[in-house]
Simulated assay, not measured.
Amino acid sequence: MMYQVFVDGQEGTTGLQIKERLERHPEVTLLEIDPARRKDRDERQRLLNEADVAFLCLPDAAARESAGLCTSGSTRLIDASTAHRVDPDWAYGLPELSPVQRAAIASSKRVANPGCHATGFNLLVRPLVDAGVLPAGTALSCQSLTGYSGGGKGLIERYEQADEATRQRLQGPSHYALSLAHKHLPEMQALTGLTAPPVFTPLVGPYYKGMVVTVPLHAWQLASVRTAQALHAELANYYAGSRFVTVQPFSADGQVDGGFLDPQGANDTNENQIFVFGDDERILLLSRLDNLGKGASGAAVQNMNIMLGLPEELGL
């Protein structure tokens, strides 16, 4: 059976990446909208209700509008925006998050795709909270370095079409979201079970894609399992057998080039690679992923496959 799929907002970065994956997917046919009618409400509504699966690659307000236009009881929606990530009527689209999450996605007609920073953070923290290793009230911090494609077309143009003076200013990583109110924070708290969000400091680097999310810990913050190596064993056990979340060998010497971990090392995959460094006192947890892969479009296609009962890796 060939499934009909519509990408609402296919001209954006995430939409284009989803479309690229769907074009090589053996089980789907793309429903294309006439470019001249891509803002035509009636035409979008027709395609949304004709599709077996529709991806919403839109700003939050537009995603909510499109979700409201979809009245068909058979269309499955996957929203790539922030609009529905903590909405109890939508399944959170991170199947590796907990033992029940994949089943929740499979049975839902409405799935909210996670944010890229949140994906890396949640996969590090949720297992430890669930196991009682990390108390839910722990005051955490998190830093995340991402390539500039994570900011969409506007940021891509800023980096790739900059004049010489601007290019010089963009050569190093830049902090942003300094209000400490990044839009991923609600899901970073709600989906990990933390009682408060972390102090989150994202940075954008002068390269196209790839990201590393880091969470530092002191051993005394943990309720049990008080060494880096023991924490590594806890995470490795949690993700044993996972197709797309891989826990790298402890301290991961083979992944570190001259003492440096490349944030682009998981690019062009749908993997979230987990690393643990440290000793008996201080511990550093890292997630490395492609912000356009497992951090966005790859995750969306993986969720579609789960919803349709297809092998998760199709198109990926």
Results as ranks from 00 to 15, higher is better:
Leu145Gly: 07
Gly115Phe: 00
Phe200Trp: 12
Ala300Leu: 00
Leu155Ala: 07
Phe121Pro: 01
Asp280Cys: 11
Arg64Gln: 04
Lys209Val: 09
Leu314Gly: 00
Ile283Arg: 01
Pro99Asp: 15
Gly241Leu: 02
Lys209Met: 10
Val129Ile: 10
Gly68Asn: 12
Met304Glu: 10
Gln229Leu: 09
Pro88Cys: 03
Arg102Phe: 10
Gly152Thr: 13
Arg21Gly: 05
Ile156Thr: 05
Glu313Arg: 00
Pro263Met: 12
Phe121Cys: 04
Val215His: 06
Cys57Ala: 15
Ser81Asp: 04
Leu316Phe: 08
Asp262His: 14
Leu48Gln: 12
Val204Tyr: 08
Arg110Asp: 08
Leu123Arg: 00
Pro114Arg: 04
Ala83Ser: 11
Ala296Gln: 11
Ala240Gln: 05
Ala103Ser: 15
Pro99Gly: 15
Ala61Ser: 15
Gln264Pro: 00
Tyr148Leu: 07
Lys153Ser: 12
Val212Gln: 02
Asp253Ala: 15
Ser297Ala: 02
Gln171Leu: 12
Leu155Thr: 15
Glu312Ile: 08
His175Phe: 13
Ser287Leu: 04
Val276Met: 05
Ala51Val: 13
Arg288His: 09
Thr138Lys: 10
Ala103His: 13
Glu164Leu: 06
Asp280Leu: 10
Gln17His: 15
Gly150His: 08
Pro202His: 08
Gln10Trp: 01
Val53Glu: 01
Ser149Tyr: 13
Arg102Cys: 14
Gly241Thr: 02
Leu203Asn: 09
Thr71Ser: 15
Pro99Lys: 14
Val125Tyr: 05
Ala162Thr: 02
Pro135His: 07
Glu281Ser: 14
Leu261Tyr: 02
Val215Ser: 07
Asp60Val: 13
Leu30Pro: 12
Gly9Glu: 02
Tyr92Lys: 13
Gln189Trp: 06
Ile283Gln: 01
Asp253Ser: 13
Met2Trp: 07
Arg41Val: 10
Asn122Val: 08
Pro249Thr: 05
Arg282Gly: 03
Gln143Arg: 11
Ala162Cys: 07
Thr82Ala: 14
Met2Asp: 12
Glu20Cys: 01
Thr246Trp: 07
Val7Pro: 00
Met304Gln: 10
Gln255Arg: 12
Pro311Val: 14
Ala296Val: 08
Leu155Ser: 07
Leu289Thr: 11
Pro35Glu: 01
Asp290Met: 11
Gly278Leu: 02
Thr82Val: 11
Ala80Ile: 03
Tyr208Phe: 13
Asn305Cys: 15
Ala63Phe: 04
Asp257Glu: 11
Leu140Tyr: 08
Met304Ile: 11
Ala196Tyr: 06
Met1Gln: 10
Gly295Tyr: 00
Ala252Tyr: 00
Ala177Thr: 06
Arg243Pro: 06
Phe275Leu: 03
Ser81Trp: 01
Pro263Tyr: 13
Asp280Met: 09
Met188Asp: 10
Ser98Asn: 13
Gln161Phe: 09
Lys183Cys: 03
Ile18Pro: 05
Lys19Ser: 06
Ser179Asn: 11
Arg21Cys: 06
Ser98Lys: 10
Leu134Glu: 10
Val111Arg: 03
Lys294Asn: 13
Asp279Ile: 01
Ser81Val: 02
Arg46Met: 05
